Amino acid sequence: HRQALGERLYPRVQAMQPAFASKITGMLLELSPAQLLLLLASEDSLRARVDEAMELII
């Protein structure tokens, strides 16, 4: 289940942060499945989480 969510998330994360897409997707997969579904449904929520992840990385 998580694998399938990751496969759906990755291209969207890659479009926002290509250099760190794998790392960010891995970080996002730590969230609950319900939270992941919310990110897939909301571009704004996904962008906010990706921005948060980038702050942790750099």
Rank of each mutant, 00 (worst) to 15 (best):
R49K: 11
S32H: 08
M27H: 03
L39C: 06
A15M: 11
L39Q: 00
L39R: 00
I57L: 10
L29E: 02
A4P: 09
A15R: 10
A15V: 08
L29A: 03
R8H: 07
V50I: 09
V13N: 01
Q17S: 09
L31E: 05
P33Q: 14
G26M: 14
L28E: 00
M27T: 02
S45M: 13
F20C: 04
S32T: 12
R12E: 05
L56G: 05
L40F: 08
R2P: 13
E7F: 04
H1K: 08
A19P: 03
G26K: 14
Q14N: 09
A53S: 06
P18A: 06
L37T: 08
M54K: 07
A34T: 12
E43G: 05
Q17E: 08
E30F: 09
T25N: 03
H1P: 08
L46P: 00
Q14S: 09
L56T: 10
Q3P: 07
E55S: 13
A48R: 14
A4T: 14
A48P: 02
E52C: 07
F20S: 03
S22E: 13
L46K: 00
D44T: 12
E52W: 13
I58F: 11
L39H: 02
M16V: 07
A4Y: 13
L28P: 00
S45A: 15
M27W: 11
E52K: 08
I24R: 00
L38A: 10
Y10I: 03
L29R: 02
A4C: 08
P18C: 06
S22F: 15
A34P: 09
A4W: 15
Q17N: 10
L9I: 09
E52Q: 10
E7V: 12
Q35Y: 13
A48Q: 11
Q17L: 06
K23F: 11
V50F: 01
S45C: 06
A34C: 06
M16Q: 05
T25L: 12
L37R: 08
S32I: 05
K23Q: 12
S45R: 13
L38D: 06
R47D: 01
I57G: 02
L40I: 07
H1Q: 13
R12D: 03
D44I: 12
E55H: 13
L39T: 05
E55P: 02
E30V: 08
V13A: 02
S42Y: 06
R49H: 09
D44Y: 06
L40Q: 02
A4F: 10
S45H: 11
L9M: 04
V13K: 02
H1E: 15
A53R: 02
Q14R: 15
E43M: 09
M16E: 03
R47C: 03
D51H: 08
L56Y: 15
S32G: 07
L31H: 05
A15I: 08
L56S: 11
L31F: 07
R8I: 15
D51K: 15
L38Y: 12
E30D: 10
Q35M: 12
I57A: 02
L38I: 10
G6M: 15
L39N: 01
P33R: 12
L5I: 12
S32R: 06
R49C: 07
A53C: 08
E55C: 07
K23W: 09
S32V: 06
D51S: 09
P18M: 05
L5H: 03
A53V: 11
S22L: 14
A48T: 08
K23R: 14
D44W: 04
D44S: 13
S22R: 11
F20W: 11
A15Q: 10
A48H: 07
G6D: 05
L40M: 08
E43D: 09
G26S: 14
D51I: 08
A21Q: 01
T25A: 04
L5Q: 03
L31V: 03
P11S: 15
S42V: 05
Q35N: 08
L28T: 00
M27D: 01
L28K: 02
L39F: 04
D44G: 08
I57K: 00
T25I: 12
L46Q: 00
E30K: 14
P33M: 15
A41T: 09
P33T: 11
E52M: 11
L36V: 11
E52F: 08
F20I: 03
Q14I: 10
S32Y: 06
Q35G: 04
G26Y: 15
A21T: 03
L40H: 02
L46I: 04
E52P: 00
L5S: 03
R49S: 09
Q17A: 15
Q17W: 11
A34G: 08
Y10G: 04
L37W: 12
E43Y: 11
V50E: 02
A34M: 10
R12M: 15
H1R: 10
I24K: 00
M16I: 11
A19I: 13
Q14V: 11
Q35E: 07
E30G: 09
L31K: 03
M54V: 08
M27Q: 04
I24S: 00
A21S: 04
L46R: 00
R8M: 13
A19G: 11
Y10Q: 04
R49F: 13
